[in-house]
Design a protein around this nucleic acid. Structure first.
Lengths: 333, 333
DNA sequence: CTGAAAGCGCTTACAG
DNA sequence: CTGAAAGCGCTTACAG
């Protein structure tokens, strides 16, 4: 139905090689020939067929994205960043979202078969073998919110530093002593890093987490509510609850309100991430900001930069800074 | 680097035609031959190269998605629905997000060139010409949250009915008389439908919107705040403010809190959509639920069903029901 | 500066 | 049930 490169060539009175040359802007073409071909292209509304080109060049002008399928605005922000970088480069985005936890995975195969020019893998367990295979083939692959050792490029945020700053604030500005922690899913490293920061900061002040004051959540909607109820079942309540993300902190808020407990007067709550929700709940959450959109944008940009220059990718480890955001849920005015 | 169909054929001692047959499960193949080929495929870890297949068959096993690039959890829910339907069908998802308002668009071209097997277009102005061209080519295309006349299949929700039920509640249960409306972006039909429902319901009760009581927002974060301030600048305040979505309603809440006004005592607020945010703000928003995820899921499923059966798509107009969700922001306990 | 030809890795009538 | 061959629409050395 549509015009092919043969149609263009015939009408312009040249060979398809020449059409291909003006299409790709490589090699020299006589200005008049070029003009003639371009006119015909416009006239026929011709456009290259992507798979034919991909087959010949092994490049698809698509960026692949692997991301957990969970319904979390946090991941949406990453997607937006990846997307913006991708369209800015004139690429298309091919998405495969995955159940968050799924043992060994062959999720990268579809991307191999489709010749994606780059791949961004977000917070997903992928087989090291597959990652290295892609990297070895020269497919620029970058990790976001996870690392796989120094040989694989990764974009993460300073979870430890952010959590540390948050806890220091709670210790020095508010003099809280009894802390509790609502953990995120256990198979991601960030919750563990944030917990470690909490423990270290407490230790420096001669404190420790009381037994039973670390409860398990999963980062998702609802789990913070249940975790908070577990905490309220303890003999001695904490002064302050540090939830591993804002979603769980917000759900904890809901649990406390139901029990007619006041935040921060009875129990203070803090979160992590600084997603939009954090500033809409009451009291607004004190939390740690991380540059979520930028994480996605920079990771994708890096992969695309490499793809477009055909250079091998450097296994750079990029750690974005985080920043304490003080609102009211910690007890500040 | 990887094995091709030739490698498999040679090692199995058959022609590539036969390999292709076992790969695609069509035509009869002798069981022993089939077994031998399958063994070799496994042995070589062979996988079909997608673009080669696409070039030969004109089918890509990709579903295209065009969606506004705005940062709105509402759209993320749709994406999730589309995504789940897509992976359930074994397809990949190719995303092109677009600035929300961009005049006539050639945004569908990339999808034509890549032979997507179906296309879901969400709340985006696309040129009617391009839509019909794709439809004419047999590419199943479905519209979500927009319609382009009866010839193009569309998935929408009952904005009018939902808004109507909401306003009836406010009129009969609460006896509010002075209404105000914060409109969504003017280039989408849903805000206008909701406003029309409001006007009709008021008229039936012998009421009307006072002058200046319709203010313009854009659905996005921040605009509800500004709109609420405009309303507070009026001589006579409304009893109740109907914001065209929950995001703007939540921002209006923030504006009122800053002025130390109480919701719902001083001014009641209601929203639309029933996004997660609605139940986290204080007071929780009375709103209208719409099945956002389902909208994306069903639209994508319909397109894929057609794609897989190679039948022409029926231009069905599907309208999902909406449902009043009563929480506290309207004045209910 | 330009063209003829081979090749990318598949599928699919057409014969047999 | 199976194979040889043409074709899908491009790109890219290789000659000239």
């Amino acid at each position: 139905v549509s015009a092919t490169i043969f149609d263009v060539a015939k009408l312009a009175g040249v060979s398809i090689s020449t059409v291909s040359r003006v299409l790709n802007g490589r090699d020299r073409v006589h200005p008049q020939t070029r003009q003639r071909v371009q006119d015909v292209i416009r006239q026929l509304d011709y456009e290259q067929t992507a798979p034919a080109r991909t087959l010949a060049t092994r490049r698809s002008e698509m960026l692949g994205l692997v991301i957990p399928r969970v319904n979390d605005p946090y991941f949406y922000e990453i997607v937006r960043g990846v997307e913006d970088a991708t369209s800015a480069a004139g690429y298309s985005l091919l998405i495969a979202s995955q159940p968050r936890h799924q043992g060994t995975s062959r999720n990268l195969k579809p991307f191999r078969r489709r010749f994606v020019d780059g791949l961004v893998v977000v917070a997903i367990d992928v087989a090291a073998e597959e990652v290295h295979e892609l990297l070895d083939r020269g497919v620029p692959l970058v990790l976001v919110q996870m690392t796989m050792g120094l040989e694989v490029p990764a974009y993460t945020v300073d979870n430890y530093g952010g959590a540390r700053a948050l806890v220091e604030h709670l210790l020095t500005e508010h003099a809280y002593r009894r802390f509790a922690y609502i953990a995120g899913s256990h198979y991601t490293p960030d919750s563990a890093q944030r917990l470690r920061a909490l423990r270290d900061a407490l230790a420096e002040h001669g404190l420790a987490l009381p037994p039973g004051h670390v409860v398990q959540g999963d980062y998702l909607r609802g789990s913070g509510y249940k975790a908070m109820l577990d905490l309220l079942a303890l003999n001695e309540w904490p002064d302050v609850v540090f939830a591993a993300n804002d979603q769980m902190a917000s759900d904890a808020l809901l649990a406390l309100r139901e029990r007619n407990l006041r935040v921060p007067e009875d129990i203070a709550i803090v979160g992590f991430d600084d997603v939009h929700l954090a500033s809409y709940v009451t009291p607004a959450l004190t939390t740690v900001h991380q540059p979520i959109y930028e994480l996605g944008f920079e990771a994708a940009s890096a992969a695309l930069r490499v793809a477009q220059q055909e250079k091998p990718i450097e296994p750079t480890q990029t750690v974005f800074p985080t920043r304490l955001v003080v609102r009211q849920s910690c007890g500040c005015a």
